[in-house]
């Protein structure tokens, strides 16, 4: 009897023999027939990664990506049938993947692509009315808490990940220099959009998760004295990213 354990091991190891007892119409062992399943697994998982990481795919090229994926899928097969989340381990895998050692920015580019997918599938949320923020007295606002939509994501990298992403997805100019960048992802309706953030804005929006408005503002000004609060709030409002403004933090 062939256990599903033995079947799986032979499936994932391209050098393993076809398990005996899997037969063709002549009753003989059937390597090419077994290879159909082996191929389906490898190709479908590899294609899922190519779809999920289009920029990484473009940066390294199809041959490199396919070879890398063939190792990754055996080390990190999906842990459940939700292929929309497949590849969460790819950034860390790339960090330790010797053939990609020279592409130091690759793991963070993969993180940005994962964050875009996460945003795409995040829960819907109703944004606050556009004029709510401006209707609150500035002094009162300082002690209040902003809640951001589940689709909002923030990433900071020591690489120019926004410029790399935009050069590959929007045909924008390639990055000018190697400086780090922070990215805000908002989803006004259904399509996540990445925005390049200054240090101050990234600090401010990151701090809103834990602190009230005034403290987040102070932290941002400390990190970047030229922090532009109006621009940061404008990006959040335009992305329907603020879902509540309350006197105490929402748990």
């Amino acid at each position: 009897m062939i256990s599903q354990d033995a079947f799986t091991q032979a499936l994932l190891d391209p050098n393993a023999a076809t398990p005996a007892g899997l037969i063709d119409p002549k009753g003989e062992t059937a390597p090419k027939r077994f290879a159909v399943y082996r191929n389906n697994v490898a190709v479908s998982l590899t294609n899922a990664l190519k779809e999920g990481f289009p920029v990484v795919h473009k940066l390294v090229g199809d041959d490199f990506f396919t070879a890398m994926a063939s190792i990754f899928i055996r080390k990190h097969p999906p842990q459940n049938p939700l292929m929309m989340h497949y590849g969460a381990e790819l950034p860390n895998f790339l960090t330790n993947f010797a053939p990609a050692a020279k592409l130091g920015y690759l793991p963070d580019v993969a993180r940005l692509e994962l964050a875009m997918r996460k945003s795409y599938h995040a829960a819907d949320a109703r944004p606050v009315a556009a004029d709510l923020l401006s209707s609150i007295e500035p002094d009162a606002l300082m002690s209040m808490y902003l809640t951001l939509a589940p689709a909002v994501q923030i990433l900071r990298s020591r690489w120019p990940i926004y410029s790399i992403w935009a050069a590959n997805m929007l045909d924008a100019e390639p990055p000018n220099g190697a400086g780090g960048q922070a990215v805000l992802i908002t989803r006004a309706e259904f399509d996540p959009v990445p925005h390049l953030l200054g240090v101050g804005a990234a600090t401010f929006i990151g701090a809103l998760a834990e602190h009230n408005f005034g403290t987040a503002h102070d932290t941002a000004l400390t990190a970047a004295p030229n922090f532009d609060l109006t621009a940061a709030l404008g990006a959040l409002l335009a992305g329907n990213a603020i879902t509540s403004i309350t006197e105490s933090p929402l748990t």
């Binding site: 079947f7 799986t8 994932l12 399943y37 697994v41 479908s44 899922a48 097969p77 999906p78 842990q79």
Partner: peptide, 17 residues
């Protein structure tokens, strides 16, 4: 068919006797 094993989800419809 089966598609999940201790290893994880294999993303194919696999046969059984």
């Amino acid at each position: 068919a089966w598609s999940t094993h201790d290893m994880g989800f294999l993303n194919d419809l696999l046969p059984l006797p």
